[in-house]
Simulated assay, not measured.
Amino acid sequence: MRESQGFALSRRDCLGWAGAAVAGASGAAVWVMPGTARAGQVEEPLADSVRSALSGAIANKAPPEPEFESMEKRLAHLRWLGAMSDRLRRRKPDFQTRIEFLQTVWYESKRAGLDTTMVMGLIQVESAFRKFAISSVGARGYMQIMPFWSRLIGDGDAGKLFNMQTNLRFGCVILRHYLETERGNTFMALGRYNGSRGRDTYPNAVSRAAKNWVHPDA
Rank of each mutant, 00 (worst) to 15 (best):
G156I: 12
R74L: 11
L88I: 04
Q165A: 12
R74N: 08
K61Q: 10
E69N: 09
W17E: 09
K160I: 11
E180F: 00
D200P: 01
P147A: 15
E43S: 14
E126A: 08
W31K: 13
V32S: 06
A112L: 09
L54F: 05
L152P: 01
T201I: 14
V105E: 04
F132A: 02
R151Q: 12
R169E: 11
H215Y: 03
G24S: 08
N212F: 07
Q124L: 04
S10R: 14
K110G: 15
A47M: 08
G141I: 01
T116F: 09
M84C: 04
M84T: 01
G24P: 14
E180N: 13
K73C: 07
R176L: 08
V30Y: 03
A189Y: 09
G184D: 06
V214I: 03
L190T: 07
A21C: 09
V22D: 03
T117L: 09
P45Q: 08
D13I: 04
A21K: 07
R199I: 03
L46P: 01
A8T: 07
G113V: 00
T201H: 01
Q5S: 15
A210K: 01
G113T: 02
W149Q: 05
R130F: 00
R169T: 02
D94P: 02
R38W: 02
G82N: 11
N204T: 14
W31F: 14
V206Y: 13
P45M: 07
S109M: 07
T97Q: 12
